[in-house]
Amino acid sequence: MHSQARRKFWIIASLLAPALAIYTVFMIYPLVGTLQTTFYQTDGKLQVFAGLDNYRKLFFEPLFSHQLLNALGNNFYFFFIHMLVQNPIGIALAAVLSVPTLRFKGLFRSIFFLPTMLSVVVVGFIWQLILSPLWGVSSGLLGALHLGFLFKPWLGLEGTALTTLSLMSVWQNIGIPMMLIYAALLSIPDEILDAARIDGANGWELFWGTKLPLIMPTIALTAILTFIGNFNAFDLVFATQGALGLPNFSTDILGTFMFRTFFGNNLQQGDLNLGATIAMVMFFIILVGVSIYLFVVQRRITSYQL
């Protein structure tokens, strides 16, 4: 008995060791070092211990707290658009793709996933070209539908830029929930589905009554991945709207706020201590989300063994 427990320990340890080693050395160690700097301030070549002063600055000096609140608000908006648009559409696409009688399945799936494979440089370029008021792609398309009056320079207006950007991001990332849900749907054994069909369920009932409960863990997974991805987002905003979240900070999210504070932007010089402090705030926000997922949601949702 004792030796069996020991054997089990060694199996677990050997399974975990390579992943934990690489991960700890190349991820945790560098990050811990950086996050330590949040308790210091830079003075020339020296790092001077400053206690919680960076946090005080970030939370209570209007100059920074306004930017933080603004970025936080924008980030939540960014996240809600993804939850409202990206994930439901992703689930719907996956559900349709998993219908056995659907034709051109592979073609559709590949096309739907195509945007997800692009780099943000391409995505940024594509949409700026399409949405630009100068080159007439979207105004031309709208005009052809007699909807030309709807056209606006969306990416340039404070009221519409963030929504536009969120939708660009949805367009790019929709492949992720779609593929995950699709993989989950494929994993459902035919016996279960056949049993439901024999009970007289039609396609609609089959999805809502049988498949959906079975893929709930995956749906929760896509939600938490969306949350993490959105609160860490940076590249797309940086590529299309710059480090300042133009126009007028209306697309500024935590990632861009952190980047420009950490590395500086144009004439503004970088402050790596304050930048790391913002990263720490991002860390805690995501930590709360992931903890809820790991300790509450994952426990509540029944994981059916198939």
Binding site: A19, Y23, P30, L31, T34, L35, N232, F283, L287
Partner: peptide, 12 residues
């Protein structure tokens, strides 16, 4: 193991 998702690795 999820901590790695919470902080932009750029900082390290």
């Amino acid at each position: 193991i999820t901590i790695g998702l919470m902080v932009p690795i750029r900082l390290g």
